[in-house]
Design a protein around this nucleic acid. Structure first.
Lengths: 129, 129
DNA sequence: TCCATTTGGTAACTAATGGAAACCAGCTAT
DNA sequence: ATAGCTGGTTTCCATTAGTTACCAAATGGA
């Protein structure tokens, strides 16, 4: 089942890996997957939790993730139509990695901001000197 | 030194983490960091290895990564000016995570493509059925 | 000598994307 | 009746990504 193509190489422009990487290396996808890792979530629930995301981007991100087989969509015929998004087994294999990315950002945010301030002031970072 | 801000939360739109995440969750940044992890590399060396990247995007990505303190730039006054890029200690802490992202894409590319084909044909993925 | 090629970029221009807001349908509560 | 919830789509504009051409300085070959 899980065939590992011998030629998969993200550095080759013709390799489809490039397209996949472009999808998953995405701010909104990382945030969405981070929330879905805890269990099924509804559309507007995601919208409220991911501050600043527009309906368009959320809808677009979820649709892409569904197409890629990372997220599954389930419409429930309740009073107002409820749509529930959950992570698929394939998506779960990616979950830990994107969580690490988000956690890295949260953890090292301060250091990055500091470096940016130094760069903007002197044109030199911490290590280059 | 390495203060971990108690309020760092990528889901808050006002948190700078969002900006940091947007930078590191980037196709080109992932590929650049992947190569720099093996040791210092020159500009055109990167350009040749990362097929399909333009000078502009490479230059822009490297500049951002340098500003963020993840990459250091060293210009050597050789015959034609050689510029060597290497990963910083801070960048090294991110390296493993972005490598995992790239490796995930390479490993699961086949499954993602399969899912895309199914979605495009039936509107349904592997798991939703 | 003169043109091609190397180095590492920048500037101009166009194609694609991101984000704000409006709009949609169906139903409910006031 | 009108404002609100559900989950979206559409439209528009600003920003960004990407392509191409060009730059300076030097070297190697014809």
């Amino acid at each position: 089942m899980s065939f590992t193509p011998p030629t998969a190489n993200a550095y080759a422009s013709t390799c489809p890996t490039r397209l996949v990487l472009d999808r998953i290396a995405d701010k909104w996808a990382v945030l969405v997957l981070g929330l879905l890792g805890d269990g099924p979530v509804r559309f507007n629930q995601l919208r409220r939790q991911i501050e600043g995301i527009s309906q368009k981007m959320l809808s677009q991100t979820l649709k892409s993730l569904e197409r890629d087989g990372l997220v599954s969509r389930k419409a429930i015929a309740t009073v107002p139509v409820t749509v529930e998004y959950s992570i698929t087994p394939l998506g779960a294999t990616l979950s830990a990695t994107v969580d690490n990315l988000r956690i890295w950002a949260e953890t090292h945010m301060g250091q990055v901001l500091l470096s940016q301030r130094q760069y903007d002031a002197t044109g030199t970072g911490t290590t280059a000197m």
